[in-house]
């Protein structure tokens, strides 16, 4: 999905200039990975198709910026196009994940690196959740009841809920995958012949190798206890 319909929807909500729209796009769809510069190419495309037009200019508000800002608004055709898009079926995104590809193409000796990758990605998921966290001021007491929320607020909650649940599903999968890989790394290590370096199986003494080795040892101990 391109940023085109997202930008058109934002302009319909409220006219704005490029930087303002890029900021709003980041706020609303931050985890979707739209590049800020995508707003400008989307505006060019929407203008060329007659879906948005200039609604005037904002004067420069500081000495740092000499040029006025062009404010965009939706045309009638733009609103109609947006309505048609809203009613059309939504495609299910293809799962094209780099880690999945690496897993599919990995060799046994890649296990330590994969364990580290899985750990890193779990941390990245948590960091993304941190970024999604609510940062606005707490509601005043007595708090407004949830059943008093307007639809735009509810819609935002639903989108954020979907994003967070995707992260949760990813983290749960990463934890399962990580546990299995650590267990396998442990069994690989235990198969090392006497006199053979453990590094031959799980790496060559770097921090990753040390971490895998300690986890493998922990897994081996756990397996013995169980």
């Amino acid at each position: 999905m391109s940023a085109k319909h997202a930008v058109l929807g934002l302009v319909i909500e409220r006219p704005g200039y490029g930087y303002d729209l890029a900021r709003r796009l980041r706020e609303r769809f931050g985890s979707s990975g739209f590049a800020p510069t995508g707003v400008y190419s989307a505006l060019d495309q929407l203008s060329a198709e007659g879906l948005v037009r200039s609604a005037g200019s904002l004067a420069a508000d500081s000495a740092e910026r000499a040029a006025p800002r062009t404010v965009y608004e939706a045309t009638g055709e733009g609103r109609e196009q947006f309505d048609r898009w809203m009613l059309s079926t939504s495609s299910l995104a293809h799962v094209r994940d780099e880690l999945n590809m690496k897993l599919a193409l990995s060799r046994p000796r890649d296990l330590p690196a994969l364990i580290e990758l899985v750990r890193c990605q779990e941390e990245q998921c948590l960091a993304r959740l941190e970024a999604l966290k609510r940062v606005d001021a707490p509601a005043e007491s007595p708090r407004p009841r949830s059943d008093g929320l307007a639809w735009p607020q509810v819609a935002r909650l639903l989108v954020r809920d979907a994003e967070v649940r995707q992260l949760q599903a990813r983290i749960e999968w990463l934890q399962r995958v990580g546990a299995i890989m650590v267990k396998l790394a442990g069994s690989q290590r235990s198969r090392v012949l006497p006199g053979e370096s453990a590094g031959a199986v799980v790496g060559r003494g770097g921090p990753v190798e040390q971490r895998v080795r300690s986890e493998a040892e922990a897994a081996a101990v756990g397996a013995r206890v169980a």
Partner: peptide, 24 residues
């Protein structure tokens, strides 16, 4: 048990395999 519930918290952590993982 549900991550969406953590969105309002000031700080968050993930407990897995007995260890606590934090975002930073």
């Amino acid at each position: 048990p549900d991550m969406p519930s953590m969105v309002h918290a000031h700080r968050i952590g993930s407990l897995s395999d007995g260890r606590l993982l934090v975002p930073s």
